[in-house]
């Protein structure tokens, strides 16, 4: 999970936002991260966690916080 947190913090740095986040901070709905960052996150999760979201009900908002990501990927926060 530390890897995910680190990766997200890097994404936030790249987006030049000076925002501190916690486990429940909204990442995409709040506009902290954009859709490009979303893609990077998905590719990261695919690589690291064998993540597969090719399902009917997938929505990037299901990965909207560290807490939700950990639920979705099955990793421990």
């Amino acid at each position: 999970m530390d890897k995910i947190v680190l990766f997200i913090e890097n994404l936030i740095k790249e987006s030049r936002m000076n925002t501190k986040i916690d486990r429940s901070t909204s990442l995409f709905l709040s506009g902290i991260l954009d859709s490009v960052a979303g893609l990077k996150l998905i590719m990261f999760l695919e690589k690291e966690y064998n993540f597969d979201a090719a399902t009917i009900d997938f929505d990037i908002n299901k990965l909207d916080s560290i807490e939700l990501i950990s639920q979705y990927t099955g990793s421990k926060p």
Partner: peptide
């Protein structure tokens, strides 16, 4: 807006969301 993509999303948010969720991600995952 900070980039062309950012502008596209801010200009017409829900249309972008529809394109992303119903087309982009499903195509991307496949």
């Amino acid at each position: 807006s900070r980039s062309l993509l950012d502008f596209f999303g801010k200009f017409n948010f829900y249309y972008k969301e529809v394109l992303l969720n119903y087309f982009y991600y499903p195509i991307f995952f496949r």
